[in-house]
């Protein structure tokens, strides 16, 4: 019983330390950058006027989009303001499409027996990893 109690306390203490750490972190951590940016290996001219890809147009309907030449002739920087998870996924897909002509799919590959938990977790974790945590 004593052991159980002390175990419970230890867990509480650990929880408290984490909570305190979290509060402190919240207090000092600067906010995330406002723009989500990728560099695409293409000429800025390929992204404007009538050349503008449809996917970029759709992004621009909901977000401010900044297109600038990358230094050193390294292509074009596409930055999207206030990009949420979905917008980040769209920006990554746009880069893939512009550079390779397609957006790589991993859904629908062979897989063995998934646990119930795994079946539920895979789409969620995949979406998290596709969008990235910010």
């Amino acid at each position: 019983m004593v052991a159980k109690k002390s175990l419970g306390l230890a867990a509480l203490a650990a929880g408290g330390a984490i909570a305190a750490g979290y509060r402190r972190r919240k207090a000092v951590r600067p906010g995330p950058a406002e723009w989500f940016a990728v560099t695409v290996d293409c000429d800025p001219g390929e992204l404007s006027g009538e050349n503008r890809p449809d996917a970029l147009g759709r992004l621009a309907e909901h977000h401010e989009v900044r297109i600038t030449p990358a230094p050193g002739g390294r292509g074009t920087e596409i930055a999207v303001h206030a990009a949420d998870g979905k917008a980040r996924e769209q920006v990554r897909a746009l880069k893939q499409f512009l550079e390779t002509g397609e957006v790589l799919r991993v859904e629908g590959q062979p897989e063995g027996h998934r646990t119930v938990l795994g079946r539920a977790a895979i789409p969620v974790s995949r979406q998290l990893m596709r969008r990235g945590v910010r």
Binding site: T39, D41, K95, E99, V103, L104, V106, M129, R130, R131
Partner: peptide
């Protein structure tokens, strides 16, 4: 490798920008 991104074209294939569609974990 995708063969088209800047890193692939610079022969740094394992740094390919496009062949890992779910990069979030490693980015973090």
């Amino acid at each position: 490798g995708c063969g088209r991104c800047r890193n692939c074209r610079a022969e740094m294939w394992s740094l390919c920008d496009n062949s890992n569609p779910d990069p979030g974990f490693l980015e973090t």
